[in-house]
Design a protein around this nucleic acid. Structure first.
Length: 436
RNA sequence: GCCGCCGUAGUAUAGCCCGGUUGAGUAUGCGGGCCUGUCGAGCCCGUGACCCGGGUUCAAAUCCCGGCGGCGGCGCCA
């Protein structure tokens, strides 16, 4: 809605302007003598400030006086010639339409004066995101996904959607949520892994932004039972290096996109997002083991690194200014059956991407040769019959390929220095939370 | 699942160790009053809480047992 403002024309030396209609919720209210000040936030992170004088704006003043924090309203106004507020953008208001008033005081403080504990924050997240700080975080999350899409689309990846109700998991049975699928047992997808590989039968490059469902009973600051992943798979690769390049360029693009397009949000959150550069350090798994042992950390040569080891490695790497780094060549004993095995039979082309001591992505070059794959499934103690639908795709010309899954919440957690992964998702699904 | 810590007004906290002086303090919110456009405004008045059950004791928010709930660590992984 654009209406010319009469007030505007009374200001000397100005051209044409439009009167804007803006909407949001009252997040702060202050009365000082004869002036009433309202701060309103909609999708904006910087509040709209409405200052009303009892003598001049009598009707509007009385409307505003009756509004509590939390009221939903729209107003028509024009940028105020005098910007006196230190917090927001001030408007001269000509009309206020009130749409809803809270029927009781809000259960949490959305002005940010009184902090809420994580548990309370999660319970009332949908309400707390009215607060500019909380909102900034989720605007950045949206930006991360937007940037990922943009990078992948620009680089020839096609977005696909694969089933979330599946008959078999990618890793075995232990971490799956079971459900009844008519007469049969089915599971919630813990990864689109197998499906995106199958699609490399017909697409050169695919990606999917998808939830992962994992029934792990862990309770840590970096795990969710429903999390989101940016899943990428590319065919016709020459080596693992092609996949690593995609992963590092994607991360750099995302971080850069947020750094340049979300300055206001980063500032509100107090985050200084440094510019990244490629290539990221490539560290062999065996080198990582050596480094950790020289630091006095006990590490197994055949198992994945423990969280303690990963964090320690993060510290060591940070000293050398490697904030993001790959760990490549994981041992076969700690890898999924679908990773390509090296000739020695001991190591694989599986990699992890770590961001300051936290695994944010993992992937690798896949085994694309039918016989080798069947052999690998058997060797992992799995039954090839359960993977028939998957194995079939390897019979008709599946090129060498590889890919990775990147944890959206983990990436955001590291970018924004969050202490708990639960901060990075609006509605939390963890060991104990099923609502809201 | 194991280990550790914790549970006080709507929210966030003090008090608990060492039971009585607590009619449970403070901030913020909410209601009311004052107030030169405040900037997490200020000042005054009011409002509102000891997770549940059992036990010890003359006396329990405080000590003990059980339950429920939360946080952190480990395992595991994105």
């Amino acid at each position: 809605m654009h209406i010319h403002s009469l007030d505007y024309y009374s200001e000397p030396g100005r051209g044409v302007i439009t009167l804007t209609r803006l909407c949001g919720w009252v997040i702060r209210k202050a009365r000082v003598g004869r002036v009433l000040i309202l701060e309103v936030c909609g999708n904006n992170t910087k509040p709209y400030v409405l200052a009303l004088r009892e003598d001049r704006d009598r009707d509007l003043f009385h409307i505003a006086e009756g509004l509590d924090i939390g009221s939903a309203l729209c107003f028509e106004g024009d940028l105020a010639p005098l910007q006196r507020s230190k917090r927001g953008v001030e408007y001269s208001v000509s009309k206020i339409e009130v749409y809803a008033k809270p029927i009781e005081p809000l259960p949490v403080d959305i002005s940010g004066k009184v902090p809420a504990l994580l548990d309370t924050r999660i319970k009332y997240r949908w309400l707390l995101v009215r607060n500019p700080v909380e909102k900034a975080l989720f605007k950045i999350r949206a930006g991360v996904l937007k940037a990922a899409r943009k990078y992948l689309e620009d680089n020839g990846f096609i977005e696909v959607n694969t089933p979330k109700i599946v008959a078999a998991g990618a890793e075995g049975g232990a971490t799956l949520f079971k459900l009844q699928y008519f007469e049969r047992e089915a599971y919630l997808s813990q990864s689109p892994q197998l499906y995106k590989q199958m699609l490399i039968s017909s697409f050169e490059r695919v990606y999917e932004i998808t939830p992962y469902f994992r029934a792990e009973k862990y309770n840590t600051t970096r795990h969710l039972n429903e999390s989101w992943g940016i899943d990428v798979e590319q065919g016709f690769i020459n080596s693992l290096e092609d996949v690593l390049e995609t992963a590092e360029n994607l991360v750099v693009y995302i971080v850069d996109y947020v750094r340049l397009n979300y300055k206001e949000e980063l500032e509100i959150l107090g985050v200084d997002l440094p510019k990244l550069s490629t290539p990221f350090k490539r560290l062999r798994f065996t080198e990582a083991v050596e480094i950790l042992r020289s630091e006095g950390v006990e590490v197994s040569e055949t198992e994945d690194l423990s969280d303690v080891a990963e964090r320690k490695l993060g510290e060591v790497m940070a000293e050398k200014k490697h904030y993001l780094y790959f760990i490549t060549g994981f041992p076969w004993s700690s890898a999924g059956f679908y990773y390509m095995r090296e000739e020695d039979g001991v190591y694989t082309r599986k990699f992890d991407l770590d961001y300051r001591g936290l695994e944010i992505a993992s992937g690798g070059q896949r085994e694309h040769r039918y016989e080798k794959l069947v052999e690998a499934i058997r060797e992992k103690g799995l039954n090839p019959e359960n993977f028939e639908f998957y194995l079939e795709a390897f019979k008709y010309g599946l090129p060498p390929h590889g890919g990775f899954g990147m944890g959206v919440e983990r990436l955001i957690m590291k970018m924004l220095n969050l202490e708990n992964i639960r901060e990075a998702i609006l509605f939390v699904r963890d060991r104990t939370r099923l609502t809201p």
